[in-house]
Design a protein around this nucleic acid. Sequence first.
DNA 1: GAGCATTTGACAACAAGTTGTCAATGACGA
DNA 2: TCGTCATTGACAACTTGTTGTCAAATGCTC
Lengths: 153, 153
Amino acid sequence: MIDDEHSSDGEILTGLVLEIFRLNGRLLTAGDRLIADVGLTSARWQVLGAIHYADEPQTVSWLARSMGLTRQAVQRIVNELEVAGLVAFKANPSHRRAQLVMLTRNGQSAYAAADRRQKPWANALAKNFKRADLAAAQVLLAKIRGKLEADTE
Amino acid sequence: MIDDEHSSDGEILTGLVLEIFRLNGRLLTAGDRLIADVGLTSARWQVLGAIHYADEPQTVSWLARSMGLTRQAVQRIVNELEVAGLVAFKANPSHRRAQLVMLTRNGQSAYAAADRRQKPWANALAKNFKRADLAAAQVLLAKIRGKLEADTE
DNA sequence: GAGCATTTGACAACAAGTTGTCAATGACGA
DNA sequence: TCGTCATTGACAACTTGTTGTCAAATGCTC
């Protein structure tokens, strides 16, 4: 066998994992700065996005699953957003405790404002990269995540 | 111009960003579980790794820069690791305040134990993926991070 | 319908990261 | 050498995420 043992596939994947950790931090701080004067944070923005992209009002548990976070983490953010007047609860006909979450008018305009900031930012960052490369990376990462989630069960 | 506006490059990059957020969380919990009975957490493990991979004992600030975290975050972990007896401080000849951090014997064996867990885990996870794809993804993410860091300055 | 497992929200403890501020230290130029 | 500026550790407040536990609500099986 040819000498190729100095860098196993596992080690290459480990390098990728460490890169994800670093990039995650950078993205969060970049996001925070991008929308600081809208009065949002990356976490709240993400929750607003999950609500926005749902076809209908959904429960906190549903939102948490769609974001890959725990119920409790999302619940706390949602409660804060409700205090801030960006989301509102709506009675759930099929579950008395699990209320449905929806954007208020203020929530919609805050999300729209964040979106207006994000679009040129994303376009600028995407420059110099090939669309196919970005898409391939996303597919790869989603597959890795799928494997991790399968292991969790 | 052909109709290709429904999914701009920026939107594709945004999808990649959201995937990174999800994967980051999964990786952290997977890491925590992997080494829970070694008495480590993902964060402490990472700090031990940064110390381990440095050629010589380094300061907390240096470690933080190499990990892409803030000084304060790393400082707190290092202080806890010192209490736990996994790292030790050493006088820095060129700076009286900024002590150098090194692994103790216990720190070395804890890191080695974590490494023994991590290797088969990484190899198993890397299975089904092409080495070139993993490497390409890492390069792409590193480039994106480089752009973000350049913007910060 | 009764009983039991699952889902859900509430609450709490904790881990890990950020920002901001301060004083001590060291580096560098006038 | 002196003054100024950047770096560093210490400390604190805060955000965001985790896990664990509890009771309420629902659904499913017998």
